[in-house]
């Protein structure tokens, strides 16, 4: 009896978490405009979605920001992880603490502080500022993905390469990188996903003229939810879910 109650309770909590999402996805296939009545399966809203120039523009912005941010964050983050790993204890712990700041700070504070930086330096907010912000919050996660791989590596291979006459650059590409590639790829995927996922920081670091999908959805949803927004949200849900599961699987396999 107790067992049944327990399972029922768990099912209830999970239903609370998942029913809204499932309903949203189902509604996006509803032929009618009504949220309550099922009027047959249709891809109508998805078609409208891809005919809306604003949404296409935001989609392109979102994807290019995510790709560029992941690229830069992966390069800077991987190099940083290698550097931090080789540091002495004290500077290392300082760097790791600094690395934690953007992850523990609430998004709204990160967003505002970056916004102030751009206001202060009179940089007009738009694509570039959003990209800079995304790189900033992506790097710590790349470092966290690469660090465990470095710790698994044999400490002396790099020094051995140098002793055998390799330059640091050569040793980086031919000794360290091949060993940590899985961590780097996971980091890049995580950075890409987080960048697609972000709303708050983008919201504060861009202008209304340059919107990514999240800020677009937000500005539309404030006026009430249109069926096309359901379709867009459903697509983003699925895309993010797949990416997250992939990243999670990679992290677990590596362990």
């Amino acid at each position: 009896m107790m067992k049944v109650i327990k399972r029922f309770y768990l099912a209830l909590v999970l239903a609370f978490l998942y029913v809204p999402i499932v309903v949203l996805i189902v509604q996006s296939f509803n032929a009618g405009k009504s949220r309550a009545k099922w009027e047959g399966f249709s891809l109508r809203w998805y078609e409208e979605l891809f005919r809306d120039p604003d949404i296409i523009k935001s989609l392109l912005i979102t994807l290019s920001i995510a790709l560029l941010a992941a690229l830069f964050a992966t390069i800077i983050g991987t190099l940083a992880a290698i550097g931090i790993h080789a540091m002495r204890k004290r500077p290392q712990s300082i760097m790791l603490t600094l690395n934690n700041i953007p992850m523990t700070m609430p998004d709204i504070v990160t967003g505002i502080s970056l916004m102030l930086l751009f206001i202060f330096t009179q940089v007009e907010r738009g694509f570039v500022t959003m990209l800079l912000a995304h790189i900033t919050f992506d790097i710590p996660y790349v470092i966290l993905s690469v660090m465990p791989k470095l710790q698994q590596m044999n400490k002396h291979t790099y020094e051995a390469a140098l002793d055998l006459g390799a330059t640091p650059g050569y040793a980086l590409f031919h000794v360290i990188l091949p060993e940590i590639v899985p961590g780097v790829v996971t980091g890049a995927m995580l950075a890409f996903t987080l960048s697609l996922d972000d709303f708050t920081i983008s919201y504060f670091t861009t202008s209304p003229l340059v919107q990514n999908l999240s800020t677009l959805i937000y500005s539309q949803a404030r006026k009430g939810i249109k069926p096309t927004m359901n379709a867009l949200s459903a697509l983003m849900f699925i895309a993010l879910l797949i990416l997250l599961l992939l990243v999670n699987k990679r992290t677990r396999d590596e362990e």
């Binding site: 949203l24 996922d197 709303f199 999240s214 959805i217 949200s233 849900f237 993010l240 879910l241 997250l244």
Partner: peptide, 12 residues
């Protein structure tokens, strides 16, 4: 998951 999207799902 994107909190904004989840909030919108709840809203709908």
């Amino acid at each position: 998951m994107n909190f904004l999207l989840r909030t919108i799902a709840l809203m709908s």
